[in-house]
């Protein structure tokens, strides 16, 4: 499986309150959440993001609240992958559980700039920067997490497990 798109780049500690402010949490409708995704740090994001685009951020992406609405908003906005140096642990679980692809890769974050066109190969963990002609290798997921991803999230995995 591959993803390709234009990069939106952010710094460290992008918290779930800016990914989807609590004032919009009176609904869990993914398309409603997508309209306000990243609103408080990047007001035009929801308007300009295109299907397949990729978010690249520094460390501790998704810190703060456990709201699954955050990865849901990002996924529903059309983002195909989030790459960061590190993720806050609840966001990491939530992204895997709902099937939003994420990758931890420090060299990629250092090398990639906003607006670069990049391609991500989820099976190999190779991230290619078409704009700069560079490639970066992301850490592979542990086998158990790969099983959850293969089942398209935790619900699929649990259903299979309970049968």
């Amino acid at each position: 499986m591959k993803a390709a798109g234009k990069v939106f780049k952010y710094g460290s500690n992008v918290d779930t309150d800016v990914i989807i402010p609590a004032r919009y949490l009176n609904t869990s409708d993914p398309s409603e959440l997508a309209k306000h995704c990243m609103e408080d740090i990047d007001a035009s994001f929801a308007e300009v993001v295109k299907q397949g685009d990729i978010i690249v951020a520094d460390k501790n992406f998704g810190c703060g609240s456990s709201r699954e609405h955050a990865p849901l908003a990002i996924k529903s906005a059309g983002v195909s992958c989030v790459i960061a140096k590190t993720f806050a642990r609840i966001f990491y679980r939530n992204a895997i559980n709902i099937g939003l692809p994420i990758m931890e890769c420090e060299p990629a974050v250092d090398g990639i700039e906003a607006g670069d066109q990049i391609e991500v190969d989820f099976s190999t963990g190779v991230i290619s920067n078409r704009t700069k002609g560079e490639t970066y290798q992301a850490e592979p997921f542990p086998a158990f997490i790969q099983k959850i991803i293969a089942a398209e999230g935790l619900v699929g995995y649990t259903r299979k497990h309970m049968e």
């Binding site: 456990s66 709201r67 699954e68 609840i90 679980r93 939530n94 559980n97 709902i98 542990p142 158990f144 999230g153 935790l154 619900v155 649990t158 497990h161 309970m162």
Partner: peptide, 20 residues
């Protein structure tokens, strides 16, 4: 520890959760 809604759903169904 805090988890998200999908982990909560699986926890309510199975009484179990995975952790590193």
């Amino acid at each position: 520890t805090g988890i998200g809604s999908t982990d909560m759903a699986a926890g309510m169904a199975t009484g179990k959760a995975w952790f590193k």
